[in-house]
Design a protein around this nucleic acid. Structure first.
Length: 593
DNA sequence: TTCGCCATAAACATTC
DNA sequence: CGAATGTTTATGGCGA
């Protein structure tokens, strides 16, 4: 669902994350456009003021909720929650309730959400005090609402808090079971559905993402209660009504009598329309924000096509050496884009060698962001040499003609679908210039292969000679700086996020890649670092370089040297493209634990 | 400042 | 012959 649409918005600007600014823009623009129902300030209390008052009360309720949440997290059971596979331990632990300011709450509870609440209450006020509204046009009802805020809002807030408590327990249970949906859009959809049917079941809920969702949950009995969407639980579901009706007939009668077409009903309907509209806007914004977040975190927002699989082939790479993760339980570093080159995205045609220099794992990077580079006109942060080598090694026979290299570039990178003369010239230049690329005459013509020995020679001597230096460098790049549990949680959350698509292999892809693939340009150094620890043995470049000759089939030795993957089993159940035979053949040989 | 790496451009040669 | 392929040189940016 949302995963599919992510790729299309991958280039969109991240949504406005400033809840305050969006507050004013939405409350002003939204209300004003709709015939000025609440957008004027002609001596009355403006909707903005009203909204502020509402927000204060929402903040109060939210603070209380956060207190409850915090106490729950700090309880002995908090560890369990923390270790939940889908728990993202980002914000909850960091956001003590004492730290919550109104400004923060404005971000937690976005303006449309608050405004939806406001409008709900407005509708409630209207319903409970029809005479107050009386013949007022819809534009002026807010003042009446405001006058009634005191007692009604207090009761409303109490109701809210009670539901919070119930919902808190519910959420914790779901978190333990890993059932809380990560996608805010899903919650928002239920929210939107709920708005049509049950506008009173207001609940705070905390998804295990790092932001709160202020949700309206549909009544679970709604669908079965009756045939009318405004009737359920034996009562009228008209906003703010709650009139008891024995049966459908009585309800219909009540509906015709109490909610006939008049100014009041029209105003209420208008309010409801605005609620829906605001929620739709909010849904769009939250979806956009989510995608921006995923894009920022390089969580491979879109994987709808089975075509996305190059990860698998990495298994057969010569550099697919024992390449353990930072810890056995946290093979997910690649999911986070912590490398120094991240800022180069979209910078422009000038790309310097920061990639190679700074240990960019091209394989994992490409694996993570395959779809991104395929669709976004962004220059990949890799050198031509790295890319060429990658393309050649990715091929079944580890040899490509020049034209096939061209095709690989254009297939993998939207960026290389333009300015062909420039980058093709650069490719040819690199092929000729670097000794690591060896031209071999084939039956069909010339093909290019990679001489790993030569390629490794390109590495700066200090990188191979000083493991300590390398280690510091790598840790400085973020490979070892991430909290292990955080990494694991992110991996798991990503898994949950992206598993919604059956054809998708993103988490396993990235993880597998991390496990198996030597980091391009620094594969040797990284592996040496790891060899100092508890992980993989160190192989010299000679050991995993392949002979420079035209091969008809992959060498056995390289495949035998591949590591054991903790996650390799994931791929067993995943569809594999036809050209992934290396992996398919090799998977059975790999053991899980 | 120097040096190495890289991207880019371009001239030129060779092959298809 | 023209395009594709391959080689080489020059230039400039950038970081160490």
């Amino acid at each position: 669902m949302m995963v599919e649409s992510a790729s299309e918005t991958i280039r969109t600007t991240p949504s406005n994350q400033n809840g305050v600014s969006s507050l004013s823009s939405q409350s002003d623009g939204g209300g004003g456009r709709e015939g000025g129902s609440n957008g004027d300030t002609n001596g009355e209390i403006s909707p903005v003021d009203l909204l502020h008052l509402q927000q204060q009360q929402a903040l109060q309720a939210a603070r209380q909720f956060l207190l409850q949440q915090a106490s729950g997290l700090n309880s002995p059971g908090s560890n369990e929650v923390k270790q939940s596979p889908v728990q993202v331990p980002v914000s909850m632990a960091m956001m003590s309730p004492q730290m919550i300011t109104p400004q923060q709450m404005q971000q937690i509870l976005s303006p449309p959400q608050l405004q939806a609440l406001l409008q709900q209450q407005q509708a409630l006020m209207l319903q409970q005090n029809p005479k107050k509204v009386g013949n007022h046009c819809a534009n002026s009802y807010t003042i009446c609402v405001f006058q009634q805020l005191g007692s009604k809002q207090l009761a409303f807030q109490q109701q809210l808090i009670q539901m919070q408590q119930l919902q808190q327990q519910h959420i914790l249970n779901l978190q333990r079971q890993g059932l809380v949906p990560l996608q805010p859009t899903a919650a928002m959809q239920s929210l939107q559905q709920g708005m049509y049917t049950d506008t009173h079941a207001l609940m705070f809920t905390v998804a295990n993402t790092d932001f709160f969702l202020f949700c309206l949950f549909p009544d679970s009995h709604e669908e079965h209660a009756g045939s009318h969407p405004l009737y359920g639980h034996g009562e009228c579901k008209w906003p703010g009504c709650e009139a008891l009706c024995e049966d459908m007939g009585q309800f219909i009668k009540h509906l015709n009598n109490e909610h006939a077409l008049d100014d009041r009903s029209t105003a209420q309907c208008r309010v409801q329309m605005q609620v829906v509209q605001q929620l739709e806007i909010q849904l769009a914004k939250e979806s956009e924000r989510l995608q921006a977040m995923m894009t920022h975190l390089h969580m491979r927002p879109s994987e709808p096509k089975p075509f996305n699989q190059p990860v698998s082939t990495y298994e057969a790479y010569p550099e697919g050496l024992p390449h353990p993760p930072t810890s056995a339980a946290t093979p997910i570093t690649p999911l986070l884009h912590t490398h120094s080159h991240s800022h180069t995205h979209g910078v422009g045609p000038i790309r310097r060698r920061n990639s190679d220099k700074y240990c960019t794992p091209i394989a994992s990077e490409l694996a993570q962001n395959c779809e991104f580079y395929k669709n976004a006109d962004v220059r990949p942060p890799f050198t031509y040499a790295s890319l060429i080598r990658h393309a050649i090694l990715e091929s079944p026979d580890r040899q490509l003609t020049l034209n096939e290299i061209y095709n690989w570039f254009t297939r993998k990178f939207a960026y290389f679908r333009r300015n062909t003369a420039t980058w093709k010239n650069a490719v040819r230049h690199n092929l000729s210039l670097h000794k690591c690329f060896v031209r071999v005459e084939n039956v069909k013509g010339a093909v290019w292969t990679v001489d790993e020995v030569e390629y490794q020679k390109r590495r700066p001597p200090k990188m191979t000679g000083s493991p300590t230096l390398v280690k510091n460098m790598i840790s400085g790049l973020g490979f070892g700086s991430l909290n292990a549990s955080y990494q694991a949680a992110l991996a798991e959350s990503s898994l949950s996020l992206l598993n919604s698509s059956p054809l998708v292999t993103p988490p396993s892809a990235a993880s597998l890649n991390m496990l198996h693939v030597g980091h391009d340009d620094v594969s040797s150094t990284v592996e040496q670092v790891n060899s100092n620890g508890s992980c993989s043995p160190t192989l010299s470049p000679q050991q995993y370089s392949h002979p420079v000759h035209v091969k008809e089939e992959p060498t056995e030795v390289e495949e035998d040297s591949r590591p054991v993957s903790l996650l390799a089993g994931v791929t067993h159940s995943l569809p594999l493209p036809s050209d992934e035979r290396d992996l398919e053949e090799d998977l059975p040989t790999e053991e899980l634990e």
